[in-house]
Write a protein that binds this DNA or RNA. Sequence first.
DNA 1: TTGATTCAGGACATGCTCATCCTTTACAAA
DNA 2: TTTGTAAAGGATGAGCATGTCCTGAATCAA
Lengths: 152, 152
Amino acid sequence: MILSRTSQYAIQALIYVTTRPRGEPVLNREIAEHLGVPAAYLAKIMQTLCRSHLLDSFRGRLGGFCLHENAEKTDLMQILLLTEGAGFTDTCLLGLKVCSDETACPMHSRWKPIKEKVVLLLKEQTLEKLALAVQSGKYRITDLPHAAMNPP
Amino acid sequence: MILSRTSQYAIQALIYVTTRPRGEPVLNREIAEHLGVPAAYLAKIMQTLCRSHLLDSFRGRLGGFCLHENAEKTDLMQILLLTEGAGFTDTCLLGLKVCSDETACPMHSRWKPIKEKVVLLLKEQTLEKLALAVQSGKYRITDLPHAAMNPP
DNA sequence: TTGATTCAGGACATGCTCATCCTTTACAAA
DNA sequence: TTTGTAAAGGATGAGCATGTCCTGAATCAA
């Protein structure tokens, strides 16, 4: 299961915003620098997240992005439906256009329960839970600094 | 989990060749027509499968592709390591370059067991088993004909 | 030897994702 | 009102996966 960079950036950015104090807009530049992702590209993603009402945006001085009302209850499945498109979880492993219980590829019966586990997992992980995990210090949403990745 | 078209075509073609009588070369054109995939593109994929010794190729009249000695014991994991590249199963859901038991993203601990299930599944599915499933008539590796997909 | 057939392989075209750049619009403080 | 700041949005480009085309090399039959 490999998500598009767009989805990965979206999830990372949303978690980061959720870790920040509610009501204080967070700058796109700050998010991009913190995550180590291209700011101009992230800006486009933030735009679509605003249009999907997961974020609110404010222009000008004191501007930035805030989590929309109750958006911390959003789960990963909802986010991925936006960024990957509907039906991203009911794809056939072999790429068949129609692969269902009635007429299937030879992997279908074993692949389906795994997909179901994935969907359950994505649905139970909310921004709130993920942000808490990051705030605990045990987990991270950014790459390690270069020094830690290339020890001398 | 979405595989590249290249991987999907490779798996489909290998299963198809496995369903055919051993020792009788199968034409690239025949495979492409049967699977409904572009012949020129498939030819490139068949080439790499030959270089990986999953197939043998023969030119000229009576030419075509045969399954290499014992290649019917090949499992999907081995095929995907060739087509998707090594390490395609140990990627982080959020895209982190380093995400291990020691230092991880907040999804790691729940994502890892799912990845392990996927790997086990891919390793137990051999071309032989998949070809038998297709030959039984219960499963298919090609798209339904248009009529069946767009009923009147 | 010639011709037909089939794979090998390079060059090229296309489409999508990822990414950048620049101008416009909105907003707040001075 | 002016100035600085930040998001909105359009245009454009880079890179890779996908797909096409054409020529060459191998093989077999006539």
